[in-house]
Simulated scan of single mutants.
Amino acid sequence: MQYEVRTLSAVNAITIVTIDAIDEQDARRQAESRALQPISVRPIVLKTASVSLRQRRFSLLLFSQEMLALIKAGLSLFEAIEALREKESASEVCDILDRLLAALREGRRFSVALAEQGGYFPPLYVGLMQAAEGTSDLPLSLARFVEYQKRIDGIRGKIVSASIYPIILMTVGGAVTVFLVCYVVPRFALVYQDTGRDLPWLSQMMIMWGQLAAKHASEFATVVVASAALSAIWVRRLLRKGGVVHLASRLPMVGHQIHLYELSRLYTTLGMLLEGGIPATNALMTACATVSAATRDRLLAAEQQIRSGRPLSLAFEVNGLTTTISLRMLRVGEQSGQLGAMLTQAAEFYDGDISRFIERFTRTFEPILMAAIGLIVGFIVVLLYMPIFDLAGSLQ
């Protein structure tokens, strides 16, 4: 949940930051980890759906890519944002850029201006820009975020692409099955009634269900639409609460890959933040907003152990945030002082494993699904034609 925290900075400036936290106490702890003294904390409640819709229209990746190109071309930060404002036509994006320009004119730091619009700029992005201000290397931080977002979007895109074709197959197969049962079967029933022959039991049952569906077509359609709507609402709630991930994690093979995806996202985030110069404990608190609730609990436990003096690799191992390979890589990173780079390499290893699993799963699941749909449709057709086969056999 997001909280709006009014804080007092080290230079005694009052700022408002938006923090993704479990509760108010967690929000205060995250603010203190950023060297900010919390004054008040209140939860953020979106009053209308149009707010979230407007947030989705603002592409943080596109904004970062354009900013990186303009700054590399020699423009200052203010000039780059001003150039983006001049070419922008969407009103909601113009409002965001106008607020950024106004904050910079007042002398506030870029990270502070971003934090004031936490609904559009997540804590991860704000923390990275704050680290860039300390190193005076904004282009490098922007490039790291662009690469990070492309990797996250790449894995997500592969998962979505792999699920599109099975969904289309199931939709078409379901539509064909409904058409056969509700339209074709009742017309075959009229033909068989005139023959006066006894039908096989399975054919009788199918015809009975077909006639019932045709007789109550409006009620049947209402039930189907209502069931689809309720299922969509249920799935949407599960997605918001992380229930889909929790259920999928219990499936054989799939659960292991979901765990790897969580670790990949965590390692990518931590690697980017550590390479950007952010302290490990602050990076861990920022990374909490990018993982599921179950992983967040383990990450918070690991963060407490790291604060007490344990090495990051040991804290991650105790809390189930490593695999055999990544544990060795983390230990090497700690010994060489390149923990951020080693986390990034571990995430790349996981991404490759996930991509190979998605490819294998798609190649295996799609033919199985097509065969299942073919069997269902073929079974209905065979039951329809069984009486005809019997009649042809008796005539011979």
Rank of each mutant, 00 (worst) to 15 (best):
V5L: 09
V5D: 02
V17W: 06
T18H: 06
L36Q: 00
V41T: 11
L61A: 06
Q65L: 14
L70E: 02
K72F: 12
I81V: 11
E82V: 12
A83F: 06
K87A: 14
E88C: 09
A102E: 15
L104W: 09
F110Y: 09
A115E: 07
G119S: 11
M129Q: 08
Q130Y: 07
A132I: 00
L138T: 02
Y148T: 04
Y148G: 00
I152D: 05
D153Q: 08
G154R: 11
G157A: 04
I159Y: 07
I164T: 12
G196R: 09
D198C: 08
D198G: 11
M206V: 15
I207F: 05
V225E: 15
A226R: 13
A228F: 11
L239D: 04
H256D: 12
E262T: 01
L263C: 06
L266W: 05
L266T: 02
Y267N: 04
G277V: 04
I278Q: 01
T281Q: 13
A301W: 03
L314M: 10
A315V: 02
E317Y: 10
N319W: 02
G320Y: 04
I325F: 13
I325A: 12
L330E: 00
V332R: 03
A341L: 14
F349T: 02
I358R: 01
R360M: 13
T362V: 12
R363F: 12
T364D: 06
F365I: 14
G378I: 07
V381K: 02
L391M: 14
